[in-house]
Simulated scan of single mutants.
Amino acid sequence: MKLSELSCGAEGKVTGMSDLSSATRKKLMVMGVLPNTPISVVRVAPLGDPLQVRVRGVDIALRKQLAESIEVEC
């Protein structure tokens, strides 16, 4: 399942980010988005972009296109 498919308030665990470039993957990892890390969708903008996600107690805004490249399991 993709991160963009989670509904508001739903929580999942990051399983992979293989579709992303290595530079983008490194930036996300520095922000705490690591494999096997719990991540939850806090809020979605009215038009669906961006998403507000919470990872390790920090809220991050991610573009929908980026969230579609992050794989999670519920």
Rank of each mutant, 00 (worst) to 15 (best):
K13M: 02
Q65I: 14
A23N: 12
A61F: 15
L51K: 07
V58M: 12
Q52W: 14
D59M: 08
V72P: 00
S40K: 09
L6I: 01
V72A: 02
P50R: 05
L34Q: 15
L66M: 11
R56A: 13
I60A: 02
E71L: 05
A45V: 04
S21Y: 10
I60N: 03
K2W: 08
V72T: 01
R56H: 12
E68N: 12
V14A: 00
R25Q: 05
A10S: 13
R54H: 04
I39A: 01
R56C: 15
M29E: 15
L51I: 12
K27W: 07
E68H: 10
V42K: 08
L3R: 01
K27A: 13
M31S: 09
V44W: 04
A61Y: 14
S22W: 03
L66S: 08
S18M: 14
S4M: 04
K27G: 07
L28S: 08
G57S: 06
L34T: 15
V42Y: 01
G16K: 04
V44C: 09
S40H: 03
V53N: 09
A45S: 13
V58C: 07
T24D: 03
G9P: 07
V41F: 04
R56N: 14
L34I: 13
G32Q: 09
V72M: 00
R25I: 01
E5K: 11
I39M: 01
L28Q: 07
L51V: 11
K2M: 11
L3N: 00
Q52L: 15
R25T: 02
S4C: 05
M29N: 13
P46H: 11
K27S: 11
A67H: 06
A45D: 12
S7L: 13
M29S: 15
A45F: 14
G57H: 10
I39L: 00
R56Y: 11
L20D: 06
V42D: 06
I70S: 10
C74E: 10
K27P: 02
S69G: 15
V33D: 07
T15H: 02
E68A: 10
A10W: 10
R63Y: 10
L51T: 09
P35N: 01
G12A: 11
P35D: 02
P35R: 04
I39F: 01
L28I: 05
M17T: 10
L51M: 14
D59L: 07
T24G: 01
P50C: 03
Q52S: 15
Q65V: 13
M1K: 03
L62T: 03
G16W: 04
A23C: 10
V42A: 04
A67W: 09
M31N: 07
S69W: 08
E5I: 02
K64V: 13
N36A: 01
V44Y: 06
V58F: 04
I39H: 00
S18T: 15
P46R: 11
N36Y: 00
E71A: 00
L62E: 02
L20H: 15
N36T: 00
E73H: 07
V14P: 02
G57T: 08
I70R: 14
L62I: 03
R43H: 04
G32A: 11
A61D: 13
S4N: 06
I70G: 13
R63C: 10
S7A: 13
D59F: 09
G16E: 04
R54E: 09
G12C: 06
G57P: 06
G32I: 05
L51Y: 15
I60W: 08
